[in-house]
């Protein structure tokens, strides 16, 4: 503080007036691109090799190392390929429940193995007995199995293959040929019952359900197949 009162204020005001005419330091961002140093680590990105193939092998080492679980990956895209997600698993729907379970310390059910989960095979045995284990009456057997379970579980198909002596591929082919036979519970295909919708469907399946539901609405009830679904 100077001896003359007010001199400090006057000198400060002279300083601000000098700054008034000095060149400005603001970076005009949208016009001039920001300088990002080569070492900048703020952006996660996946690298591609010279053929344009994704280098990531989904080995999960990065996700393992990440302390706050901000890296996670998973999911299948509409063409059945692996799609790798970056970002917190809460941010994309198909892994949300799984993430919550994992954070709670519980085991995460894998929907891919749901079809192979053990089921009660008593009805299948009864049907096979009734049809006299005859592979030529396969359509009848399959229809009865579907009536019993609501759909065709993989374990039941294997049992049918074992009981009749027919190849599994043949049974599977027969089942896929007919429209009224299905491999998933009907609730999932209806797409309306949220409670019955499994937590994890592959991306393809969900898209297909949405697509068909939209298609049914658009076409109306005119051209439905025997199972009531759009062909």
């Amino acid at each position: 503080m100077s001896l003359i009162p007010g001199l400090g204020i006057v000198r400060g005001m002279a300083l601000t007036l000098r700054r008034f005419f000095q060149p400005k330091v603001t970076h005009l961002y949208p016009e001039l691109p920001a300088e990002i140093s080569p070492k900048f680590r703020g952006r996660l990105q996946l690298l591609y090799d010279e053929h344009g193939t994704l280098k990531c092998e989904t080995c999960f080492q990065c996700a393992q190392a990440c302390p706050i679980e901000c890296i996670d990956m998973g999911g299948v895209d509409t063409k059945g390929r692996y799609a790798v997600h970056w970002g917190a698993s809460e941010t994309y729907g198909e892994r949300r429940e799984e993430s919550a379970l994992r954070r709670a310390g519980r085991t995460v059910p894998d929907v891919a193995y749901e079809h192979w989960s053990p089921i009660d095979l008593g009805p299948v045995d009864a049907i096979l007995h009734e049809a006299d284990h005859d592979p030529s009456r396969l359509l009848e057997i399959l229809g009865a199995t579907q009536a019993a379970y609501g759909y065709l579980p993989v374990a039941a198909l294997k049992r049918i293959s074992f009981g009749t002596g027919a190849w599994y591929a043949m049974i599977y082919g027969t089942a896929t040929y007919y429209d009224h036979l299905r491999f998933e519970p009907p609730a999932r295909l209806a797409g309306s019952d949220k409670a019955a919708t499994p937590a994890l469907g592959s991306g393809r399946q969900r898209l297909e359900v949405d697509y068909l539901a939209g298609l049914e609405q658009a076409i109306g009830s005119g051209s439905k197949g025997p199972a009531g679904r759009v062909r």
Binding site: T16, L17, R19, F20, Q22, K24, V25, T26, L28
Partner: peptide, 10 residues
């Protein structure tokens, strides 16, 4: 504007 220019802003 004036305060911005004194603050070395635009």
């Amino acid at each position: 504007k004036v305060i911005a220019l004194m603050n070395l802003r635009y």
